[in-house]
Every structure is written in structure tokens, then in C-alpha cells.
Design a binder for these strands. Structure first.
Ligand code: SF4
Ligand code: SF4
Lengths: 141, 141
DNA sequence: AGATAAAAAGACTTTTATATCTTTTTTTAT
DNA sequence: ATAAAAAAAGATATAAAAGTCTTTTTATCT
């Protein structure tokens, strides 16, 4: 479903959601080490998210990445679409060129329902909400 | 979710399900042309499926690929797992190393349901059943 | 038996995704 | 002002996926 890049990005953002604030920044290295993800690669992803205003950063000593109030209230979907592109949730599961109700693919009924379910979830819940669930339920990124 | 290879394979098998029988074979070229898929590449996939007894073939003049009675009664899941490996349905959606109920990932609840639903479907329904749905409902591969 | 048609197998190429390395810019602390 | 720390940007490298091409084998038909 999601690319490796996207998985890294989701995890990093959720991690930042409960680890950072505008004056509690964290460096790429710490995130990468914690999540056990390639550092320079994650840096790229975070930069991309920063350019799209889904993550914030400050340079220089004591700088680092963090989530602003605005950042944490974005639906997680934006992070996903920023990395994997807006097609992730609309692309056909069977790779057919067009998905229409008139000409749907063989797996239509079931595949559609479940993908739609995932979309609903990341589209509705914000980064902060999902991160809250994580800490409350003792889950781990 | 599925690799391109897997999508090609699913479509090819469903196509064969209503186009072929032990004495109605079809060549790679016809399948590839109909599905608009790269021929030599599809050939590889069909060969792999054949080696795993999910598709049947005969060589020589008037030879080609087809589905035996046994082939069409396999759950579609086997085709998927033959191409994408058995991990497709067990691998973590977020790429975490281990997925356990004690230590589940942030998207656990919803993501799990989504994937489980898809698994149920391709695990229960046979190739023939799904193909029948296709023709009945006027869907297209 | 010989010719032929098709799959099977293997080698190879291209493209895309993933990962690393190097240099530059910006900010903060001294 | 200067030094240092960190992100930003760009270039490069590696690996995996997708696609192509060539040769070999096998079945069928005449
Ligand atoms: S509903 Fe069916 S046709 Fe549409 S994108 Fe999903 S799998 Fe493809
Ligand atoms: S349930 Fe959660 S932890 Fe388990 S595989 Fe799915 S996404 Fe990963």
C-alpha cells in the first residue's frame, strides 16, 4: 500500500507529534536512530514535508525538526499524499487505467470498501489524534 | 498493495478463467494484447504460475495457457502469494519489524481490518467464483 | 521423420526506488 | 564577528522492480 518512504515519513511524524513542540526540537539523527531508519534518507523526507508545511524546522545550533500547532492538526492523509502522491488512494488496485462505476475491476466491491476505509481514517484523524491514540494505548511507532 | 507483476497475474488468470479450458488454450500474445500488458514480461509470470500449478500449459502448435478444473478452484490468494510472496498479507503496513498484538503499530486498528478484509476475500473466493462475478456483473479485467 | 509453433529458460537492459555522500546555507551561542 | 551545529540542497551510488531479447525445449501437425 504505502511506499517505504511513506512508512518512514508516517512514523517520523507520529514520533515528532509526542516528542516535539515549537521549542522542543529534535534532530534527524535522533529520529532515525529511534525508528531504526536510514538517516540521510529520512532527512530528505523531512525536508520534503517541511517544504509542504507539514513539518517545521529551524537550522543552526539547537535547531531541528518539530511539529507546530498547525502541523499537528493536519490529517495524516496529507503526509501520505505528500510523499506517495495524491494517487495512492485513487489508483486502481489492479492497475487498470480507469476506475469508474460503469467499468469497475473484478475486485471492485471488496477492494474498494477496504481502501475507502483506510482513506476515511487518515483523512479524518489528525496527526495529533493518531499520535494520542499511540501513547494512550501503549502502541509504538 | 500488489506489485505490478501481481496485478498482471491476477488479471491474466481471471481472463483465462472465462476464456480457456483444457482444450481451449490461449497464447501469451493474445492475453498480453487483450490486457495491454508487456508480452514477454507476462510470459515470465505465467511460467512462474505454471511451475506452481496455478496455471496449466502445453507447448507446441495449438498449445498455450489454460486453467484446468483444479486451477480454477484455487483461491485467488494463491496466485497473489505465488507472485508477491506469502508476506503480502502479513507484512506490517508501516514496515515495522514485528507486528504483535502486544506491540502493534499506530495504525493498527483500522489498517489491520482493511487488510484482513481483502485477505478474507481472496482467500475464500476461488478464481472461478471471482471470474463468474466479473462476467455476471459486466465488469472487466 | 521433419517442420513448426508455442512455452520455458536464461541473459540482459532500463527504470524506479532506496540510500549515501558532499557541499552550502542558515541560525545560534560565544 | 566568529565558530559551530544543524537543516537544505545537490550529486552520486546501490538495489530492486519492470521490461526485453535470445536461445532452448517440447509438443503437434503434416
Ligand atoms: S474499485 Fe476496482 S476498478 Fe476501481 S480502483 Fe479499485 S480495484 Fe480498480
Ligand atoms: S496491525 Fe499495525 S502493527 Fe500490525 S502489521 Fe498492521 S500496521 Fe503494522
Amino acid at each position: 500500500m504505502f511506499s517505504k518512504s511513506c512508512k518512514y515519513a508516517i512514523r517520523a511524524v507520529l514520533y515528532m507529534a509526542y516528542k516535539t513542540s515549537p521549542d522542543q526540537r529534535v534532530g534527524v539523527k535522533e529520529i532515525a536512530d529511534t525508528l531504526d531508519v536510514p538517516g540521510p534518507f529520512l532527512a530528505k523526507l523531512l525536508q520534503q514535508l517541511t517544504r509542504n508545511n507539514l513539518v517545521s524546522s529551524v537550522k543552526g545550533p539547537n535547531g531541528g525538526f518539530f511539529l507546530s500547532e498547525k502541523n499537528r492538526n493536519e490529517p495524516l492523509r496529507k503526509v501520505v499524499e505528500c510523499i506517495d502522491g495524491p494517487e495512492v488512494f485513487s489508483a486502481c488496485i489492479l492497475g487498470l487505467p480507469v476506475c469508474s462505476s460503469e467499468n469497475p475491476c473484478p475486485l471492485h466491491t471488496q477492494a474498494f470498501i477496504y481502501r475507502e476505509g483506510l482513506l476515511q481514517m487518515v483523512g479524518k484523524k489528525t496527526v495529533a489524534e493518531i499520535a494520542a491514540q499511540v501513547t494512550q494505548e501503549g502502541l509504538s511507532v
